[in-house]
């Protein structure tokens, strides 16, 4: 099985109806009254990147929401109030990012199997709650995702390794039934250096869906499977906006200080 973290800490925090941030090697989960209200991980594109990558929001609109809404821990609601997004769009995008990040917080790609264990009580995220997710639902979904990966291709080595297409494996003639939609995009972004996470960041796409696509491509013989036990890529995970002023980092520091 892939590294699965069944986390008693999370159950306890849910039972206590705790509010705060639970940090681990793969990122952080934010809770309010025992429900998960936000998750972030460097392995997945965040809400801002998802909304700006496809042009749904301009980077300026996003920065305005982070700066002005984030100051009151409500950047998400700010976007809806200003008419930048519909409530439905905010909920869909945020839930997708939340479950995506939570997967990598609870199943870190470094294979450490270490559950998140540092809890900062009363810490709140600057994005603000949108649609709280009960811990039990989150845990059921994490189990379902692990089993989907396992069923697609039981080789966790492909998750953190560079994706290397097998030359000539994709049919070239027009009209031939090759990989479709997401999987074709993943193959096109696979340059032999990027890992599945880095492909997801490049495409502004759900990292779990990308991981699943890579496993399915491996099962179909379209990408190479690394040798078991081969060292994972040491390339740093850089978000696409890594050079932009990181106001979100400042908020995180502030939130952590407030939580002390």
């Amino acid at each position: 099985m892939s590294p699965a973290v069944e986390d008693p800490t999370l159950d306890r925090l849910a039972a206590e109806r705790a509010t705060g941030a639970l940090h681990g090697r793969g990122g952080a989960l934010y809770l309010a009254d025992g429900a998960v209200v936000h998750a972030e991980s460097p392995a997945v594109p965040d809400v801002g990147w998802r909304l700006t990558a496809g042009g749904r929001l301009s980077p300026e609109s996003w920065e305005e929401a982070v700066t002005r809404g984030g100051a009151d821990h409500r950047a998400g609601s700010f976007l809806v109030e200003r008419g930048r997004l519909s409530r439905g769009e905010l909920e869909l995008c945020h839930l997708s990012a939340l479950f995506d990040a939570a997967y990598f917080v609870l199943s870190p790609l470094d294979g450490s199997r270490r559950a998140p264990d540092r809890f900062f009580r009363e810490a709140r995220h600057w994005f603000g709650p949108v649609r709280p997710v009960p811990v039990a639902l989150l845990q059921r979904e994490m189990r379902r995702r692990r089993s989907l990966l396992e069923r697609a291709w039981p080789c966790p080595e492909v998750d953190a390794a560079p994706v290397v297409p097998v030359p000539g494996a994709v049919p070239r003639e027009p009209g031939a039934a090759g990989p479709t939609c997401g999987r074709r995009a993943v193959l096109e972004a696979a340059d032999g250096v990027r890992t599945p996470s880095q492909i997801a960041l490049a495409l502004g796409r759900c990292a779990f869906a990308t991981l699943l696509d890579v496993r399915r491509l491996a099962a179909a013989g379209l990408v190479r499977t690394p040798e078991a036990g081969a060292p994972a890529s040491r390339a740093p995970l850089r978000g696409p906006r890594a050079d932009a002023p990181e106001i979100s980092l400042l908020y995180r520091i502030r939130d952590a200080l407030e939580a002390l």
Partner: peptide
């Protein structure tokens, strides 16, 4: 299928 201007699959 719900079509969105960002990545989604709902």
């Amino acid at each position: 299928f719900v079509e969105t201007a960002f990545d989604s699959s709902v």
